[in-house]
Simulated scan of single mutants.
Amino acid sequence: MAATDSVRPQLDGLDLARYLAFVGMVFVNFKIAMGADTDDTIISTFITALEGRAAATFVILAGIGLGLSRVQSYKRTVYGIGKRALLLFMLGCLNMLVFDADIIHYYAVYFLLAAFFLPLRTRWLFLVILLVNILFLAMIFLLDYDLGWDWKTYSYPDFWTFDGFVRNLFFNGWHPVFPWVSFVFFGIILSRLRLHTRSTQHRLIAAGLSLMVLIEGLSLWLTPLLMPIDADLATLVTTKPIPPLPLYILAGSGFACFLLGLCLRSAAHVKKLGILPLFAPAGRQTLTLYFAHILVGMGILEALRMLDGQTAEEAARAALIFCIGATAFSYVWAKRFTHGPLESLLKLTGK
């Protein structure tokens, strides 16, 4: 989400990256909500490629924002983040009443946990990321990942029971704390780089692209080799977001690095063209726009009876129309107000 007052002046590229990550999430969520089947068309393939990647980038950017915070008082920082996390958690749970794939209530827990790890040195954060993913692998072997799910309807019938809620939140939900919190930790690590320098930006682009190609290639190579032996074993090398296994975490991190580096490097050129001010406000109002794409965007689609049986092309068209409208709204709103509606509420909570 948008950075807080304690964050140093934002790099234009971060706003651009946040905007693009949000747009990617809208395309993915509209495709899911509109019941569009995955097929061999270019648009369907493109949206499928964004599944899990756009959301991972969104969370990593949140970690960067957290890492860029000036921590003058550690206790005060944890207290402030705790209050905001509580508000996000409540908003996310309310959102779950209308949208099963909500990320905000997970996001609140990521942020709260990450706040306690802010003082750690980079090498220890890498170790924590490793341990989080090892823990999730152990959970995959020891627990039933399918428990609670109705995969035919992609619903979680016992979500509102205590056991179901905890299981969904920490283990087998859409964006479970383990291992998704490692994206926030990785974002904190990235925040410690000299993001404003060209050399760092070039390294992010090169490293991110290389990691994506390597991991996706490794998955494509290993899957057909392991499938005849054991289908469950082959699942362990998937880069799909469900379940979020280590190769997915690596692929998502690579995508985020590539997009981040590209946005940081191109932001100055986009600014010279005079179009960055059109996108930057939306990049700073992503909390408001996230709820808007569900309550307003999907609400309109429901009124038009377009939430089932649509094509990927129709989902992409609807997502594009919404994103254009959201961008225009954010631009007009920013002319009069510093922060978006929900961002302002979040800032008041943090005081």
Rank of each mutant, 00 (worst) to 15 (best):
R192P: 02
I81E: 07
A33Y: 00
T311C: 00
L87Y: 07
W333Y: 09
R53A: 09
F111I: 13
L276A: 12
A256P: 00
A315Y: 00
V184H: 00
H202C: 13
L193E: 12
C93R: 07
K83C: 11
V59C: 09
P246M: 11
H202E: 09
Q285S: 15
L301Y: 02
A2F: 12
L236V: 05
L169I: 14
V59Y: 03
T200M: 06
F22R: 00
L91N: 07
L130S: 14
A319E: 06
T77I: 05
L211G: 04
F291K: 01
R265F: 12
K271L: 06
I42R: 00
P244F: 01
S210M: 14
L220M: 14
P9A: 07
E313G: 08
K83E: 10
S199T: 13
I294N: 07
R8W: 08
L295Y: 08
R18Q: 12
L259H: 10
T286S: 11
W333N: 01
L88S: 03
L307A: 06
P157A: 13
L66C: 10
S73W: 03
T38I: 09
I129Y: 01
A206N: 11
L113M: 14
R198A: 11
L247S: 04
I215V: 15
M96I: 02
S182R: 06
L342H: 08
L195T: 11
